[in-house]
């Protein structure tokens, strides 16, 4: 063997170089997400004494009592716990006042706030501003049951396992994505809260579906110069002027949310091709293994 002693040193150096390069690549990939300072997701709130409190537990382990109000808000949250709460006030009497109590059932008010257009993922728009209502869940039901009773929920898998990723198909695909926030306080500003009496009644929101309108008034209102300090310190919406009167985008009702899950199905070309590929490569593997054995 002529290469017996050839290049022992350089080989080592190369191995080391490859190891280091792999390390750098891995960490660069891993670290990329760290540079982001905010996440875009459905934040979960529970009302306490008529103010929204960020829930310390997940919806699966948060058990409501009769007369509770829970809230969901889709937004770019810079810091969970001090983040953006649903803009409507958690007023149980307004939501469930007309709903009679039933034995073995809990009445829970729920507010689902789709957030502002500025917080929407690229190419998507909030299907509405917000919706609120009253749902019945069996005693012992969790916050997840409350949400499911109110809307079509998309739940994550894998690393996002168990997370509420989408409500009523919004956002369509992503799940608690990290986003780099711009220095402008656009997404941080609390949009001027609406007067609760006009928006909270169950199933009686003004209607006009214009999903194609890119500039929803909610987005417009969010760009209004609201003090960012207020966003960080007080998640309690103060009842103020009501810009929601001029709203053109229609907040879906609870009932419409429940039926919204049925999307148009088309033939799953990708899945079929993928399955065929898997079968082909797998068959190739077993064929080669058998050929070796012979």
């Amino acid at each position: 063997m002529t290469t017996a002693r050839r290049r022992a040193g350089p080989t080592q150096a190369r191995v080391a170089a490859v190891t280091l390069a792999t390390l750098v690549i891995m960490v660069a990939l891993a670290g990329r997400a760290h540079a982001a300072t905010a996440y875009r997701y459905w934040a979960y709130y529970v009302a306490q004494a008529n103010t929204w409190q960020f829930s310390q537990r997940g919806p699966a382990t948060e058990y409501p009592v009769d007369g509770e109000v829970q809230g969901w808000r889709f937004a770019i949250q810079t810091e969970a716990g001090k983040g953006l709460a649903p803009r409507a006030l958690p007023d149980f009497a307004k939501m469930c006042g007309s709903t009679p109590a039933t034995a073995g059932q809990l009445r829970v008010g729920i507010v689902i706030d789709f957030g502002v257009g500025a917080d929407a993922p690229t190419g998507e728009h909030p299907p509405g501003t917000e919706v609120s209502g009253c749902v019945h869940v069996a005693e012992g039901g969790s916050g997840a049951d409350v949400l499911r009773a109110a809307a079509a929920v998309r739940i994550g898998t894998g690393a996002d396992g168990g997370l509420v990723c989408g409500i009523d198909g919004y956002p369509a695909n992503e799940c608690a994505t990290a986003v780099t926030t711009k220095p402008t306080p656009t997404s941080n500003a609390i949009p001027t809260p609406k007067a609760t009496p006009t928006t909270t009644p169950l199933l009686t929101s003004p209607a006009k579906a214009t999903a194609s309108t890119p500039n929803t008034p909610a987005a417009a209102s969010s760009s209004a110069p609201a003090p960012p300090v207020a966003a960080a310190s007080s998640p309690v919406p103060t009842s103020a002027s009501a810009p929601s009167i001029a709203r053109t985008s229609r907040p879906p009702t609870l009932a419409s949310l429940r039926t919204a899950a049925n999307r148009t199905d088309h033939f799953p070309v990708g899945a079929v091709v993928g399955a065929a590929l898997v079968v082909a490569v797998g068959a190739g593997a077993s064929w080669r293994a058998r050929a070796r054995r012979r």
Binding site: H34, Q77, A80
Partner: peptide
């Protein structure tokens, strides 16, 4: 401190 969605952090930590 970031409670619910420490997403990137905890998925990348094991790596």
């Amino acid at each position: 401190t970031s409670a619910n969605v420490d997403a990137a952090h905890t998925t990348d930590a094991p790596w």
